[in-house]
Design a protein around this nucleic acid. Structure first.
Lengths: 332, 332
DNA sequence: GAAAATTCAGAACACGTTTTCCTGGACGAA
DNA sequence: TTCGTCCAGGAAAACGTGTTCTGAATTTTC
C-alpha cells in the first residue's frame, strides 16, 4: 500500500542515514561488537525511521544457516499429519525458524523432487511424517532428519512415535477400573500396524477379561455398526467394547442404541484418536485415547533443533498418550 | 563451527573439476551464454560427479527473488484452510516455489510476528486465508498478496472466494428438478456471513417453494437433529431440507430416520461442504455442495504468481461450486 | 610526560550465485 | 596484410549480511 515497487531499504541505507559504516550498523542492530551506546541508539533510530527489516537471505548466506526446516508429509488428507505439522510449526516459529511444506501425495517421484528442492534451499533440517504408523524407508540427505509418527526403518535414525501399546492398555485399564470384565475389541485392518499393536495391547492388558478375538475390519462407522451384530451373536454377555478408532466407536454406539442397549450402562465403549468431530458428535460422547499429536509435533521439532545444534538423539522415542474420559464409559 | 558433515560442493568446485571458471560453469548449468557443447557437457559431468546442487540462497540473493511464498492462515483446526493450502502448495511446487506455513491461531500478535518474518525472508508473495467467509482486514506489506476464502475488506485487493450464492442456489434447483415444492432451510448462526448468504440464496432460488423461514442455529449435528423437530411441527408437509452444512444435514438425516421419515422418499436432504467424513458416513450419503477448495487454492496460487510476474488481478474473484449428488436426494 | 591499555569504528573479506563486460583468438573479406 | 566479426570463455561486480582484522583516538598507568 505504502510504496508499491520500491525495494526494501538495505543495511547500507541505515548506515548512511546514521552516518556510520555498514559493519557498525550491523553490530549496532545485532548487539554485538564494541560500540558506544549512543551510536547503537543512533543506528537503531535510523533503522526504525527507514522501516528497515534485515534481509534474511544475506544473513542465511553469511551464517551458513537458512533458518528453515522442511516438512515432508505423504498424507494429503491430513487426518494425522495436520496436528503434527501445527505443533512443529509452533515450536519452530518460537525460534525464528520457518517451515516449508512439502506434500508428496505418496508419490516417490514427488518426494525426490521435494528432497532436491529442500537440499537446494540448504534447509537446516527435515521432518518426515506420514499417515500410518508403519516404519518407512529413510531418506538420504546430508541434513539432520527426524521422523514423526511413521518411524524410519533404520533404528539409528531419530524417530518420534506414539506409544500405541500404552494407549490401548490405558483404555482397557480404565474399563476394568469401572468393573467391566468382558471386554471386546473392534478395530481396523489386520494389515495395519497400528491395528495390530492396539489389538495385541488390548488383549494383553485385558487378560482373562478379554472376550473372544479382536475383530478386524475397515476404519469406518459402517464396520463399527456391523461389528456389533457379529460380536453380540458370539458373545452376548460383553460389557465393554474397546475400539481401535473413534469412527468405529461411533458406529458401535449408534448400532447399540438402535438395538436398545444402553451405553455405558449395558456396554461401555471406548474410542481411539480423540478426533473431536467423531468423539464429541457421538451419542454418547466418547471416552477415547488422545495421541497428543500436536505435542508430538512440538517434540519432533525440538529434537530436530537439538540435532541441528549438534547433539542428535538416536533411535525411536515413544511419547505417551492421554486418556480422555467422557460419557461413553462414565455415563452422565 | 565444528561441521560434522562435509559442506555441500559449491559451483567453484564444479568449475575447478571441469577446468573452467565459475562463470562458465554457471552458464553451462543454466543453459545460458555462449559455450561449446563439449564444454557444457564437461561441466555437467563434473556437477554430476560431485553431486552438486546449486545453493538457492545464493541464487535468491543474486536474482532478487526468493522463490518462496508465505501462507498465513488464522485457522488452526484447518477444516477449510487445509485443502486450500494443499492446492496452493501443489500449484506452487510446479514452479519450483516453496511455501512457508504460518498459523496465526487468530492471534494478531502472532500475525504481526509472522508478517515481519516473511518480509524479512523477502518472500515473493503472500497468501492469506481464514476459516470464515467474512471479509478480513488487509495486511500491510510491500509484497504481492492474494486473499483466499476470506476476502480483504479492500475491494481493490485480490481475493479468491467461493460463490456461496450460486452453490446454495444449485442445491435448490436440484431439489426442484426432482419435483420438490416445499423446501426448508436449516443452517448455522445468523451472525455468520456464509450462513446469511446461503440462506438468502436458498430463499431466493426456491421462490414460492420455500417453506417458512430459514432456521439458524449452530454448525452441529445436534442442531440438525433439533431443527427437524422444530421444522416438522411448523411445516409438516415439507418435502425437502436444504442444509447449510454437512454436519447439520447429517443430524437432520439421523433425526428423520428416528422419526420414521424416509430420506429421500418422504423428505430429500442436501448438505454443504462435501466434507467426506460427514457426507459419506451419513445415512443415506449426502447430496452436497463442494466448494472445490483445493482448486481455489490452486487458482489463488496462480493469481499470486501472476501478481509476482507483474500483472496483478484486482478485486474479488468468485469461483463456482460443484453439486455432488448422492442418495439423500436421489435414493438408491 | 611517555608508554601501555582500552575503546570505538571502519576496511576488507566471506558466503554462493548470476550477470555484465571484456579479452584473446580464429576466421573471412577487402 | 589488415580490419572487422564472431565465438568461447574469463574477470569482476552485484546481491545483503556478518565477522574478523586493523588502526586511530582516548584513557589509564607508571
Amino acid at each position: 500500500m505504502a510504496s508499491p515497487l520500491r525495494s526494501q531499504p538495505r543495511i547500507t541505507d541505515v548506515a548512511a542515514l546514521a552516518g556510520v559504516s555498514t559493519s557498525t550498523a550491523s553490530k549496532a542492530l545485532n548487539d554485538t561488537g564494541q560500540l558506544r551506546e549512543e551510536t547503537r541508539e543512533r543506528v537503531r533510530r535510523a533503522a526504525e525511521q527507514l522501516g528497515f527489516t534485515p534481509d534474511s537471505r544475506g544473513r542465511a548466506l553469511s551464517s551458513g544457516r537458512s533458518f528453515t526446516v522442511g516438512l515432508i508429509t505423504t498424507d494429503s488428507s491430513g487426518r494425522f499429519s495436520i496436528p503434527i505439522m501445527l505443533g512443529a510449526e509452533d515450536a519452530l516459529s518460537a525460534g525464528e525458524m520457518a517451515l516449508v511444506l512439502c506434500d508428496t501425495r505418496d508419490d516417490p517421484l514427488r518426494e525426490q523432487h521435494y528432497l532436491k528442492s529442500l537440499v537446494s534451499r540448504r534447509v537446516d533440517g527435515i521432518i518426515v511424517t506420514g499417515r500410518r504408523t508403519e516404519p518407512r524407508a529413510p531418506i538420504d540427505v546430508p541434513i539432520p532428519v527426524v521422523y514423526a509418527f511413521s518411524p524410519s526403518t533404520d533404528p539409528d535414525d531419530t524417530s518420534v512415535i506414539v506409544d500405541d501399546h500404552g494407549g490401548a492398555a490405558s483404555a482397557v485399564r480404565h474399563l476394568q477400573s469401572l468393573g467391566r470384565s468382558k471386554i471386546a475389541h473392534v478395530t481396523g485392518p489386520d494389515s495395519h500396524h497400528s491395528a495390530q499393536v492396539r489389538a495385541a495391547a488390548t488383549v494383553e492388558a485385558a487378560g482373562d477379561a478379554f472376550a473372544g478375538e479382536p475383530l478386524h475390519g475397515e476404519w469406518s462407522e459402517r464396520w463399527g455398526r456391523h461389528a456389533v451384530d457379529v460380536l453380540l451373536r458370539a458373545h452376548p454377555a460383553v460389557d465393554a467394547i474397546a475400539c481401535g478408532s473413534d469412527q468405529i466407536a461411533r458406529g458401535v454406539c449408534d448400532r447399540l442404541r438402535e438395538l436398545g442397549r444402553s451405553v455405558p450402562d449395558d456396554i461401555a465403549v471406548t474410542g481411539y484418536d480423540n478426533w473431536s468431530v467423531m468423539a464429541l458428535a457421538s451419542r454418547p460422547p466418547l471416552t477415547t485415547v488422545d495421541m497428543e499429536l500436536e505435542e508430538l509435533g512440538r517434540r519432533t521439532a525440538n529434537l530436530l533443533l537439538d540435532a541441528i545444534a549438534g547433539s542428535a538423539h538416536h533411535g525411536p522415542m515413544e511419547l505417551p498418550t492421554r486418556l480422555i474420559t467422557r460419557e461413553s464409559t462414565l455415563g452422565t
